[in-house]
């Protein structure tokens, strides 16, 4: 089970990278980066998963005494929470730069931006 989630995440990362490298349109590249970002998050959560255990919230079903035998790893979940928020910030930043580039050339095709090409 854990392998399925892990493989899904890796496939998403690969699909995102492939899309970012092959697309010529800047907006499509941003979407591709977002997909790769989601893949990384899925991989991180999948690494924290342990079969037969429950969410890391203490309640009547998960008393403190046996908590470490019943809950999954909370650390990757905290990391992913952080990563999601930062990912949103990065997406917004990319969109803002894409807008500036569009104002500059009136086009979002990456082949019109040749200054950094070699």
């Amino acid at each position: 089970m854990a392998q399925i989630a892990l493989a899904t995440g890796f496939v998403l990362i690969l699909a995102g990278l492939y899309g970012a490298l092959t697309n010529r349109d800047i907006l499509r590249m941003i979407v591709a980066f977002t997909i790769a970002d989601t893949g990384v998050n899925v991989v991180l959560v999948a690494v924290g998963y342990m079969p037969g255990r429950t969410a890391p919230i203490l309640d009547a079903a998960v008393p403190v005494a046996v908590a470490s035998q019943r809950i999954i790893d909370p650390v990757p979940q905290a990391l992913v929470l952080t990563a999601i928020v930062i990912g949103l910030g990065i997406t917004a930043l990319m969109l803002a730069y894409a807008y500036r580039l569009f104002r500059l050339r009136h086009s979002l095709d990456i082949s019109n931006f040749t200054e950094l090409k070699w």
């Binding site: 342990m50 403190v64 470490s68 909370p74």
Partner: peptide, 19 residues
């Protein structure tokens, strides 16, 4: 992915947090 085996028990940091 193919060599991945999920942990059988929490690592020390997570166990500390849980306890």
């Amino acid at each position: 992915t193919s060599g991945y085996v999920p942990d059988a028990e929490l690592n020390r940091t997570a166990a500390y947090y849980a306890a």
